[in-house]
Simulated scan of single mutants.
Amino acid sequence: MSFIRTLHGDIKPEQLGFTYSHEHIVCRPPFWVEKGEDDLLLDDKEASLKDVLDFVHHGGQAIVDATAVDYGRDVQAVANIATEAGIHIVGTAGFNKSFLWDAAITPHLHEVIGGNFRTYKDWIEGSSINELTQYVVKEVEEGLEGTKFKGGQVKFGTAYNRITPLEEKTIRAIARAHHETKAPIHSHTEVGTMALEQIEILKSENVDVSYVSFGHMDRNPDSYYHEKIASMGSFLCFDGIAKIKYAPESTRIACILELVKKGYEKQILVSGDTARKTYYKHYGYGLGLEYIIAKWVPRFIDEANKAGFDGEKLVELFFVENPKRCFTFKG
């Protein structure tokens, strides 16, 4: 039986609806807390809720919260937002990237994982691959950080243009957790790099990479690279919408349409990775969670139609049909 696992239970894939595939809703990343980077702390549940309600007002139905354990999740707050906003939220088990792991482990997490680990690095370094695997499996099958709210995908991440030994360790743990749970896999690629190298490691763990979505593909606007990843059957997540400091929307849309031209339209996901107060409307007066569905989608439809495609059909694929397949537990 196929299903999608949300914070409030398993649903049929066709129930998911219009979906943002990579967001952060409420989190206080320990690394950024220690650095005093307030902009990167989404620490006001009510402000986050207002942005989610804006998304719902425009027809949004689901959000994949890609916040892993090392990024300071507030699982209960996000679960409450799902209830109050009346949407599906998919939670994330697993890990992010190595530079975040120097931060001290929070007391709450200490209670969950046990041991004498001071930092996330200590924990990952001091645990076997199989011990990390079982932690992730527990988050998928029992609940995130000891709560009753289960993870609906498993995640790993790597650094810019390199994969550290500890990151490889988490990739292998996630691969094994995927085999045990059948959960879909999400990859953080720093500035869109190292996806092909990640795939080599996953294949060495006998992972079918059609179960994997690769994040931040628009940070590396290289159509040849995108085609290489797509040709292996993986999903590509263009999740930097509205971040003009990295590239104009024309660049992102051109990369997406290039994949469509090559026949990979069924492997594209779109989202905003809205992880700063200044990106949120109700924290820092930013464009907010409503921007993609209310502003970017009409622009994309217009550009796609002018390029000879059916823009509305592509939007249905990117935000409904593709997420429905990507986030499904199969078998």
Rank of each mutant, 00 (worst) to 15 (best):
Asp218Gly: 15
Asp74Glu: 12
Ala177Cys: 04
Asp51Gln: 12
Gly114Arg: 10
Glu167Phe: 03
Leu317Met: 07
Asp208Ala: 08
Gly60Tyr: 00
Gly272Thr: 13
Ser21Val: 05
Lys203Thr: 09
Gly60Thr: 00
Thr170Met: 05
Pro248Met: 03
Thr328Leu: 04
Thr328Asn: 12
Val78Ser: 07
Glu258Asn: 10
Ile124Met: 05
Phe149Trp: 03
Leu269Arg: 00
Lys169Asp: 04
Glu303Leu: 13
Ala68Glu: 08
Ile301His: 00
Cys326Leu: 06
Gly152Lys: 00
His58Gly: 12
Ile124Leu: 13
Lys266Asn: 15
Tyr224Asn: 14
Trp32Phe: 07
Gly272Gln: 14
Leu100Trp: 15
Lys228Glu: 11
Pro29Ser: 02
Glu197Asn: 06
Gly240Ala: 07
Thr181Leu: 02
Gly91Ala: 06
Met194Phe: 05
Leu257Phe: 01
Tyr246Ser: 07
Ile105Val: 14
Glu249Tyr: 03
Cys237Val: 09
Glu265Ile: 08
Glu84Leu: 09
Glu258Lys: 03
Arg118Ser: 15
Arg28Ile: 06
Phe327Thr: 08
Asn206Glu: 15
Leu236Gln: 05
Ala304Phe: 03
Arg325Ser: 11
His186Ala: 12
Leu100Glu: 12
Leu40Thr: 13
Lys35Gln: 14
Glu168Gln: 05
Asp51Thr: 13
Gly9His: 01
Lys266His: 14
Arg28Gln: 06
Glu249Ser: 11
Thr147Lys: 00
Gly143Lys: 02
Leu132Ser: 01
Asn206Tyr: 11
Cys27Pro: 02
Gln267Ile: 09
Ala177Lys: 03
Cys255Ser: 08
Gly59His: 10
Tyr279Leu: 10
Pro30Ile: 00
Leu314Tyr: 04
Ala77Ser: 06
Tyr211His: 15
Gln267Ala: 05
Asp302Val: 04
Glu46His: 11
Ile25Glu: 00
Cys27Glu: 00
Lys277Glu: 03
Phe329Ile: 05
Ile81Pro: 12
Thr133Pro: 06
Pro298Ser: 03
Gly288Ala: 09
Asn305His: 03
Asp222Ser: 06
Ala82Gly: 07
Thr158Tyr: 02
Gly240Leu: 05
Glu321Met: 08
Lys150Ile: 02
Arg162Cys: 12
Lys45Ala: 15
Lys45Gly: 05
Tyr246Cys: 09
Lys277Leu: 09
Val315Gly: 00
Leu166Gln: 01
Cys237Tyr: 13
Asp102Leu: 13
Cys27Tyr: 01
Leu132Cys: 04
Ala85Ile: 09
Glu197Ile: 06
Leu236Tyr: 04
Arg5Asp: 10
Arg162Phe: 03
Gly115Asn: 15
Ser48Val: 08
Gln153Arg: 09
Asn116Asp: 12
Gly94Ile: 11
Gly17Phe: 08
Phe329Trp: 00
Ala275Arg: 04
Asp310Pro: 05
His8Glu: 13
Ala93Pro: 15
Pro221Gln: 04
Phe31Gln: 08
Ser213Pro: 14
Glu131Ile: 05
Glu84Ala: 13
Ser271Glu: 06
Trp296Lys: 00
Arg118Tyr: 15
Cys255Gln: 01
Leu289Tyr: 10
Val90Ile: 12
Glu141Gln: 08
Ala104His: 14
Glu258Arg: 03
Ala62Thr: 11
Gly215Cys: 08
Phe149Ile: 01
Ala93Phe: 10
Tyr211Ser: 15
Lys295Gln: 09
Tyr283Gly: 13
Pro13Tyr: 02
Pro30His: 00
Ile268Glu: 02
Leu287Phe: 11
Thr328Ala: 14
Ala195Cys: 05
Asn305Phe: 02
